Amino acid sequence: MKFQTGVNATAIAPVNPWGMVPALGNLDAYITAVNRLPMLTLEEEQTYARQLRDHNSVDAAGRLVLSHLRLVVSVSRQYLGYGLPQGDLIQEGNVGLMKAVKRFDPEQGVRLVSYALHWIKAEIHEYILKNWRMVKVATTKAQRKLFFNLRSMKQGFKTDAMEDGATHRDTLSNAEIDMMAEQLNVKREEVMEMETRMSGGDVLLDPSPSDDGEQAFGPIAYLADAAHEPTAMIESHQRDVLASDGIAAALNSLDERSRRIVEERWLKVNDDGSGGMTLHELAAEYKVSAERIRQIEVAAMKKMKKALVEYA
């Protein structure tokens, strides 16, 4: 069961006052609608929670979820600084709210709002980590804590500096780095690395052409390695095989005279860089005309070409 912005959330609880949520078409209408939904009293909350736990009541689950949708909206506002759509943050928070409702035990003496807060933030945190950058910026528990506290702590340093009448730099000072590392129980180097990674902007791998029609230069131009593209690697391997084993097999298909003519004319290289024997030199050796040597060479090349095709 997943509540989305733009979906009639009262589908599972049609009894008033839950019918106050209309069919929605935009985020502002959704926020306005959920803020009109009444809150549950402690007795109502425990009653619905027991109905869900003991009888798996979908209607009770819907009432618990709907009465806390405003909490998700409130939490989502805390994460708008990451540049992700608030509608997406709300949707992920709603997933966390529904997980909390499913696991909520009314006998623990805790209100659902306190219990659900952890689940809502956990889902939003996970969404931000997966989507804020193409490459994850936080993996360990300590790094995640640093990721979500770095921005707020930097803002606090900036506010303090303004109150003292001093100008604050965009980068952290050594004292601020040490203070942050101590408070968050991480290494100083991790604070510096996380700040560098968070301050870097996203770069398009393949930017679109400029207004004048010229192709913009992007990382894709130098990141792509054509030599290791799978098709190119296969073709290169096939050429290497044909140039070695294939040529040897094709030469073995020739008679001795034709093979020697081909080797002298195409494969032999002397120490001084010159090639093998000329047509006239071969003609003199075999006591035939140069034209006859050329005919034998052409016939031999055709036979080798056929042998290479069969070998490939």
Rank of each mutant, 00 (worst) to 15 (best):
I31T: 08
R36P: 03
Q86T: 10
E43F: 06
V58H: 05
A49E: 03
L66G: 11
I90S: 04
Q86I: 05
G83V: 13
Y48H: 09
D59V: 10
N56M: 13
H68L: 06
D54P: 15
P38R: 08
P38Y: 12
Q86W: 06
L80W: 04
V73Q: 00
N56R: 15
P38W: 09
V73C: 09
Y30G: 07
L80M: 05
E45R: 00
T47S: 14
Y30Q: 08
I90E: 06
P85Q: 12
A60D: 14
Y48T: 01
A60S: 15
G81W: 01
Y30A: 12
L89T: 05
S74F: 10
V65C: 15
A60F: 10
G62Y: 09
V58M: 08
S76D: 12
A60C: 09
R70P: 02
L89F: 06
V75N: 05
L40R: 00
L40P: 04
T47P: 04
R77A: 09
G87F: 05
D88M: 10
S76E: 15
L80N: 03
A61Y: 14
R77M: 07
L89E: 01
G62I: 12
S57W: 02
T47A: 08
T41D: 02
R36Q: 15
N56E: 13
N56D: 10
